[in-house]
Design a protein around this nucleic acid. Structure first.
Length: 386
DNA sequence: TCTGGGGTCCTAGGACCC
DNA sequence: TCTGGGGTCCTAGGACCC
């Protein structure tokens, strides 16, 4: 007997950050608006909304309303470029605490109906609905999706889109087909008609680089990728990725919905308002570096981890990025110890250009409460190791 | 006036051990 | 002395995702 097909959903909030802002400022509904840029300062009047054309400085768009998207603006786009396309669009500063609050609300509402939930960040989740839709019917899947949509709306006032399919890959693809507030259900039979005409880059895992290489090889649609010879794909893209491309294009994906996972690393990074010179701006650089380590140490305490691999990340004014890391004999978590280890990493980087970004990371994480007392480094020991 | 911040996973070479 | 594998850890970079 072949295993019963699963019923997997992907739920994606519609223009999440921007939609949360519209709950706060309903008078902006229907207008092009984007979320992004630096945090608001206390001096700014929260009811006065600057236009994109007034913005000066670094940053990208985090979310654009559908009205702004119609003007060609999308997330990830630099604010200065977006200002050219949509100078009159409103610019709303990001407020992550509020977004996290609404994230918890919608996930709790979904969990009441479908407890097998995998977190995929602040605004999307996977759900295993197999037990809720035992016959695997389209009608059953659609009914559950409608209930979920309504529950999310009741809990938050926000809309979401759902895809329901036999696996995560297809569910993710489908949740995007009828946005906003859409529901798309597909079965294996629908793949040739519904999935194969789509561009290959719509597959989660085919990014800009792979899409460009596929294009150059004459493969544009998922169907063309499905028709390509697997050995040839492996020659072009490597054994593993070639095999994965072949399976993905055919709608094959066995990954389970993972309801619990532990973090592998925790990091903090910052892009400076202006590029800092390694010697002329040495003091400022050093202060920002220390501050990042303090914030990271606080994050580690709050989340209950320590780690033994400390990493440093630098981005230069030409956008070239380098990383260095150092693995210590014992896990650490204190700001001073992190600062010292990351300082050792910094000594291994030649500093010949101005610095745009500085980041610090702690990996090889261990839960604080999992460390036997005799292994818990005291501050003094931590300093000796660092 | 280009290009945020938080992550995961993969690859590949070298060290080191069996 | 030379020739080998295999496994694991460390490090650096890169692709990709939200």
């Amino acid at each position: 007997m072949p295993p019963l097909p699963r019923s997997i959903a992907h739920l994606d909030m519609d223009a999440f950050y921007a939609s949360v802002e519209l709950l706060r400022y309903p008078q902006l509904r229907g207008l092009p608006a984007v979320v992004g840029g630096r945090r608001a300062t206390a001096a700014e009047d929260p009811a006065h909304f600057p236009r994109l054309r007034d913005y000066v400085g670094r940053g990208v768009i985090t979310t654009a309303t559908y009205e702004a998207r119609a003007l060609g603006v999308h997330s990830g786009m630099g604010l200065m470029k977006a200002a050219q396309l949509a100078p009159d669009a409103l610019l709303l500063p990001a407020d992550f605490d509020t977004y996290r609050h609404y994230s918890r609300l919608f996930k709790a509402a979904v969990r009441e109906i479908a407890p097998d939930l995998e977190d995929r960040g602040i605004d999307e989740i996977y759900l295993d609905l197999t037990a809720l839709n035992p016959d695997g019917s389209r009608e059953g899947a659609h009914a559950i999706a409608l209930r979920l949509q309504q529950a999310v709306r009741d809990a938050t006032g926000l809309s979401c889109s759902l895809g329901v399919a036999p696996n995560k890959l297809l569910a993710k693809l489908c949740s995007d087909l009828e946005k906003p507030a859409g529901i798309t259900v597909v079965a294996a039979d629908d793949i040739p008609a519904r999935i194969w005409p789509l561009p290959a880059k719509r597959i989660n895992g085919i990014g800009p680089k792979a899409a460009e290489r596929l294009d150059a090889l004459g493969i544009h649609s998922i169907g063309e990728l499905a028709a390509a010879d697997v050995l040839w794909l492996q020659e072009q893209f490597g054994e593993r990725y070639g095999q994965w491309l072949h399976r993905a294009a055919r709608g094959q994906d066995e990954r389970p919905v993972v309801t619990h996972s532990e973090p592998k690393s925790i990091s903090r990074e910052t892009t400076f308002e202006r590029d800092l010179h390694p010697r002329q701006d040495r003091n400022e650089l050093s202060q920002r570096f220390t501050r990042l380590c303090e914030q990271l140490a606080a994050d580690l305490v709050r989340k209950g981890y320590v780690g033994k691999t400390i990493g440093l990340k630098l981005r230069f004014d030409n956008f070239h990025t380098v990383t260095r890391d150092l693995t210590l004999p014992n896990p650490i978590g204190e700001a001073a110890a992190i600062r010292r280890a990351a300082g050792e990493c910094l000594k291994r980087v030649p500093l010949e250009r101005r610095i745009r970004l500085l980041g610090v990371r702690v990996g090889n994480l261990v839960r604080r409460d999992a460390i036997p007392d005799h292994e818990t480094p005291t501050p003094v020991q931590a300093e000796l190791f660092a």
